[in-house]
């Protein structure tokens, strides 16, 4: 009994110190992590509606349902929204933009924990320089390419997703993105109609 209490105290002390240390690290990195997430969010919104000037979040209680993208003349370009789909080993979070007539402007996968090398290829960017060209210094200085899988969604109507090619060996991850974007886009369009 005495030993038990002693062990508990020792383990408790170690846990306390660990927790204290983690609290410190958390405090130090919290702002930066939030800033990183925010940066990414605005960057991805810009990527999806490059012509938009302002994004106004449409909220229900405290959760953001979607962002309305407006250009400099206050014309509504469309809505940007987040879709969540169950992939192979994680929930894939995708940001997508849809115009009022149901066309996807672009999509961007924000968060995923899919199998490296397989499911994670939904974020794969096709390189356009081989190693030999790079070593000779012939690297083409072009604008960074977008992931080819996500590129397929651009300017596609949400009812016309059949032509999107799934990734070989990662059908589940591909399907998760396709169906989640499709489903959420329809919901968002429905909501916009409702609000007007």
């Amino acid at each position: 009994m005495k030993g038990l209490i002693k062990y508990g105290m020792i383990l408790g002390t170690i846990c306390l110190i660990s927790a204290g240390l983690l609290a410190c690290v958390n405090l130090l990195t919290k702002e930066r992590i939030l800033a990183q997430i925010n940066n990414e969010e605005t960057a991805s919104l810009k990527e999806i509606f490059p012509d938009a000037v302002s994004f106004s979040p449409v909220k229900q209680k405290d959760t953001i349902l979607y962002y309305l993208a407006e250009d400099s003349h206050k014309n509504i370009l469309g809505a940007a929204f987040k879709a969540h789909g169950k992939g192979y080993s994680s929930v894939i979070e995708t940001m997508a933009g849809v115009t009022p007539d149901g066309t996807i402007t672009a999509i961007k996968v924000l968060n995923q924990n899919e199998t490296p090398g397989l499911g994670s290829r939904i974020c794969e960017v096709e390189a356009d320089t081989t190693i030999f060209e790079a070593m000779k210094g012939k690297a083409k200085q072009t604008t960074p390419k977008k992931p080819w899988f996500q590129e397929q969604f651009c300017n596609k109507n949400i009812d016309n997703f059949d032509s999107i090619e799934a990734i070989t060996g990662a059908t589940i991850s591909s399907r998760a993105v396709i169906t989640s974007v499709q489903k959420r886009a329809k919901e968002v369009l429905e909501m916009i109609k409702h609000n007007q």
Binding site: L11, I14, C15, S18, L21, L22, V25, N26, T29, R32, I33, Q36, E40, S90, N111, Q112, N113, E114, P116, S120, C123
Partner: peptide, 26 residues
């Protein structure tokens, strides 16, 4: 407990300074 503490530190630092690597390693 000791190991988990260090791992959490690594994860937080990675998230703050290299989100791309954190995403790749998942």
């Amino acid at each position: 407990v000791i190991i988990a503490t260090f791992v959490t530190v690594v994860e937080l630092i990675m998230k703050a300074y290299s989100p791309a690597l954190n995403r790749a390693l998942g």
